[in-house]
Design a binder for these strands. Structure first.
Length: 423
RNA sequence: GUGAGUGUCGCCUAGCGGUCUAAGGCGCCAGGUUGUGGCCCUGGAGAGCGUGGGUUCAAAUCCCUCCACUCACCCCA
């Protein structure tokens, strides 16, 4: 038993410890710098929203709304939900702040925690973190291509090279009903033994029939009518232009006729990026167009497209692929002292260096010289400075390079310059 | 919601009915002469074996309960 662990992080949540932070900082920095290249600006929305926002946008028949939301009543009696996805809040903000008056499309990115009540497993948590981009206010397939390009470049530049891009078009509100009718018709005939889930889907959410993973449904779904064969002329045009633009960008995409997504708001373009490696959590990044969402939320008809990617899954894949991660910066110098007079000097010197933006440490407590040196070494500090009686009297310091074990004595007043030169 | 697996010091692991007042490695702390790290050596702190119950003369070791965690299904990032 862990006596020290009377309290534990709630199921499906985890502490991101210092030794993991290099991964997170790496991804964050790359995400920020990459999106800047495409003109995105950051937005941070509240951790919770009114429950209705998600009911309306994500779709009441989706798993997320049906059984995965953290919903509760606040003290004022309002139904509140911890955000289970990032797009709806951004759209809410778009409307609330009149962003339709900004230059269109409005390009926003977010980096936040997401909450879903699920059974945790590898790459799936109750609290996880998503990085997402939304481009709101333009329907040009060139924008679709640009967003997909951004998603691809982000993952690729992180060092994930063994990835695949899949796209599909699931039509719009004009042509999808007819397609769904055809799909239902197909499933109504000649489909002897569907899994129980699919039997329910035929009525409730026929599009989802296509991505059923149940073996007995595979062949049926494979041979099902394809959405791309039943697009209206506008959607057809949109999709073929998209493919053309993706070609221009040299993005190696594959059309997956069975790619549909689990949120109801998607229209036309949907896409996913998956790692080539085996594993249960196949989707590392997913997104698509949602041309009707803003209108559904009470705005004017406003086309939009976006994607989101799970940071935990990126970390998982970075580790699996053995991608080298740049280490986080450490203090440059550790000041070691001998005796009380030297300790006072060390404290002053450490503070002075910090005020000059040089990371510096000194050991609290009455540690021996040996212990201080050990600590400097264990922390991976590049330089040690030693101040003892002799140095105090001569106004010098011993400067030791911990990586080469070379050391020299320098005048104390030169320390700052010396370190600055070697930063 | 369903299924499978696991549960011994901070981490990893040994022990599989008595020799366990539980062992080792990593890590941590302190030393290895007088002012110096990494290797090496010595010592120290640190668990009573997830929980409750049962079987037994005897349980970390067998059985059951519950709990937790992990993995997988579903779905999603």
């Amino acid at each position: 038993m862990r006596r020290s662990a009377l309290y534990r992080a709630p199921r499906g949540t985890s502490d991101i410890l210092p030794q993991e932070q290099a991964y997170w900082r790496y991804i964050e920095q790359k995400a920020v710098s990459t999106t800047q290249l495409y003109g995105y600006e950051r937005i941070d929305c509240p951790v919770f929203e009114g429950t209705q926002l998600f009911d309306r946008s994500v779709g009441e028949d989706t798993d997320i709304v049906e059984k995965e939301m953290y919903t509760f009543e606040d003290r004022g009696g309002n139904s509140i939900t911890l955000r289970p996805e990032g797009t709806a809040p951004v759209c809410r903000a778009y409307l609330e702040h009149g962003m339709h008056n900004w230059p269109q499309p409005v390009k926003l990115y977010y980096l936040t925690s997401i909450f879903r009540y699920e059974r945790p497993q590898a790459g799936r948590y109750r609290e996880h973190h998503q990085f997402g981009c939304e481009a709101i206010g333009d329907s040009d397939p060139a924008l679709d291509a640009e967003v997909i390009d951004l998603a691809w470049q982000l993952l690729y530049s992180l060092g994930l090279h063994r990835i695949t891009l899949q796209i599909n078009s699931i039509g719009c509100k004009d042509c999808r009903p007819a397609y769904l009718a055809i799909l239902k018709e197909y499933y109504a005939h000649g489909t002897p033994d569907l899994c129980p889930d699919c039997q329910a889907r035929v009525v409730r959410n026929p599009l989802r029939l296509l991505d059923c993973k149940n073996p007995q449904c595979q062949s049926v779904a494979d041979a099902a009518p394809k959405s791309v064969d039943h697009l209206c002329p506008q959607c057809q045009e949109h999709f073929s232009r998209l493919k053309e633009y993706l070609g221009l960008l040299s993005l190696p995409f594959r059309i997956n006729h069975r790619l549909v997504r689990g949120l109801d708001y998607y229209t036309r373009t949907v896409f996913e990026i998956q790692p080539e490696a085996e594993g249960s959590q196949t989707t590392i990044l997913g997104g698509g167009r949602y041309d009707d969402l803003i209108e559904q939320l009470g705005g004017k008809p406003t086309p939009a497209i976006g994607f989101a990617t799970g940071l935990e899954r990126i970390v998982l894949n970075l580790k699996r692929e053995g991608v080298p991660i740049p280490p986080l910066p450490r203090p440059q110098v550790f000041i070691v002292y001998l005796g009380d007079a030297a300790k006072a000097k060390a404290i002053k010197q450490t503070a002075a260096l910090r005020r000059k933006n040089i990371g510096a440490l000194t050991a609290p407590g009455g540690k021996s010289l040996k212990a201080q040196m050990r600590q400097a070494n264990a922390l991976g500090i590049h330089y040690a400075v030693i101040i003892g009686e002799q140095e105090l009297q001569t106004g010098t310091m011993i400067l030791r390079d911990m990586t080469t074990a070379e050391q020299q004595t320098i005048p104390g007043e030169q320390l700052e310059d010396w370190l600055t030169a070697r930063r």
